[in-house]
């Protein structure tokens, strides 16, 4: 594989990990988040700082990075989960702008210059780059998707589904809305943090604009395109929205317009996404492969 393809594939896999986290929050628990890039960024910045300022290795820092992301997720989740629907969407947009501003204006976080000189990840004495780094990301994606798969099959996941459908009814069967929403938020932000750490060590230079509001929109577009609440949706969405801009390179100026158009078209014609229960793709699949619609 050429370096170009590997770069694109690695970014796609990292995005898929982050979108898996978004899927837990939005797809499973039904809590709209338009600020997911903030948690992606918190993971990336804490990994970068721990590596450059504290001199920790990726592996030593990883538990800390995931903990920091999920604790910040918990702290920001506590007040924002007291609001619902449109208000939650606006609150999470606000979180995204605040976090980006903190990265941009506080010198500790590198300010406008960002953080550079982030070392490569070492594994068994090997410095991972190119294809080996891609394999590491893939391994983490498998881990994250396994966690997501388990989440949909355990009581915690079922409780989140119930909350997504109707909060009052969920509470009437013993589900604490606050507790399970926070659980989803913490799990989702932890995955975003993991993705951020991989991103920081891959790019080796990060700046605040990597985690701005349009990135949140892109991440959400991937999820909506794939199908909210579906296990394979994050990967499918990340592949399509990661590969298309490369194929249509000359149109790169129009990327956001293109994403917006996709989002609108999906909402109008395929609200449940490509993998959704009633989607066109599934109907076609069901015709081609017997039982393929499942």
């Amino acid at each position: 594989m050429s370096g170009y393809l590997i770069t694109i594939a690695t970014i796609i896999v990292i995005n898929a990990i982050v979108v898996c986290g978004l899927n837990v929050i939005v797809g499973y628990a039904g809590q709209i988040s338009l600020g997911h890039a903030a948690f992606f960024g918190i993971g990336a910045y804490s990994a970068a700082l721990l590596a450059t300022k504290a001199g920790l290795s990726f592996w030593a820092a990883l538990p800390l990075v995931v903990t920091i992301s999920s604790v910040v997720g918990l702290l920001l989740g506590l007040p924002s989960l007291r609001v619902k629907d449109d208000f939650l969407a606006i609150t999470t947009i606000g979180i995204n702008f605040i976090v980006e501003a903190v990265f941009l204006y506080i010198p500790f976080f590198g300010g406008a210059l960002g953080i550079g000189g982030i070392p490569r990840i070492c594994l068994f004495g090997l410095r991972l780059k190119g294809f080996s780094f891609f394999l590491l990301c893939l391994a983490f994606l498998v881990l994250v998707m396994t966690a997501c798969w388990w989440f949909t099959r355990c009581w915690a996941g079922l409780a989140c589904f119930a909350l997504r459908e109707d909060e009052e009814a969920a509470a009437s069967v013993g589900i604490s809305p606050v507790r399970f929403k926070l659980l989803a938020f913490v799990a989702g932000t932890a995955m975003a943090g993991l993705g951020g750490a991989l991103y920081a060590h891959y790019m080796r230079f990060i700046s605040a604009s990597d985690f701005s509001f349009p990135v949140s929109i892109t991440l959400l577009s991937m999820l909506v395109l794939g199908g909210m609440g579906k296990l394979w949706a994050p990967l499918l969405g990340a592949v399509i929205l990661g590969a298309l801009p490369e194929i249509f390179r000359p149109l790169v100026e129009y990327r956001i317009l293109f994403y917006t158009a996709i989002l609108l078209l999906m909402i109008r014609f395929q609200p449940s996404g490509l993998l959704g229960d009633e989607s066109l793709a599934r109907k076609v699949l069901a015709k081609v492969v017997p039982g393929g619609g499942r």
Binding site: L158, V173, G174, I175
Partner: peptide
């Protein structure tokens, strides 16, 4: 109904 059966576990 299964959601309701989780009552024994949610706490």
């Amino acid at each position: 109904v299964l959601v309701a059966r989780g009552i024994a576990n949610y706490g």
